[in-house]
Amino acid sequence: MSVEKLAYYPGCPSEATALEQHMSTEAVFEKLGVELVEVEEWNCCGAAEAEDPNLVYALNARNLAIAERVNLDIMTPCSICYYNLARANNALKADEELRAEIKGIDPSLEYNGTITPKHILDVLVNDIGLEEIKSKLVKKVEVKVAPYYGCYIGRPPETAFDDPDDPVLMDQLIELIGGENVPFSTMKTKCCGGPLMMTRADLAFEMARKILDTAKNAGADCIALACPLCGMMLDAKQPDIEKALNVKFEMPIVYITQLLGLALGIEPNKLGLQKNVVGAKKILEKVV
């Protein structure tokens, strides 16, 4: 195995709305024998709301610098945090003047560009590797899964680590643990609407509806994802979407780390499976 220790950047939703993603990430990496060192005193990456690139660069320089001081690559389970860490890293690595200027704001922002930001899917499949994970599996998760990637995994090209139109990393993990990927290619990389939830809920709900609808029609037992904003939109807001659009989905939404954790034999409660808003425990019947 090529990776033993990583700096872990949980991101703001890990403290509340995506607590189950945080719990399952920690549990899975412990089981895989990869030590996660939480970025001490990490700050918000700016999410989709920091529209000024300078703000993104400075906010993320601090997180990158903290990880660099312990000499570890930095991993996050959130697609937006990954996008911001990665584009800040690219900009700072390429521009010595920018690095110096940001260091001038405060010495704690001194970043020399010696580490690499990684998304959790990239780490699991490309760094730890399917063979290594396979050797630790103890159960089969025989569920039909709609693998939903959303944004910032295959795009924009500057920070992408999977195919923009037909990403495969999550599909590979689902197959590995005994699951079946339902036909979902039309929706895999469509935006969930999350960034519009607070300002144009009507559009956001319609975007989420299409994803939920497609998964249900494809016969999925659940949708798997790897971004807490998609989780908030598709899981925590699902009852609101059902009410507003007069539809019924009752579609469990699980983080890929929760599914993987089940295959690794981790207790469902340790994976936060009791915290998913749409009852996710019914998939346990299919874990053998």
Partner: peptide, 18 residues
């Protein structure tokens, strides 16, 4: 103000307009 910042346009632009 209704752009969802999903970056699909950025990924597909043949002229790298971002």
């Amino acid at each position: 103000w209704i752009c969802a910042i999903c970056q699909t346009c950025t990924a597909r632009c043949p002229q790298n307009v971002v």
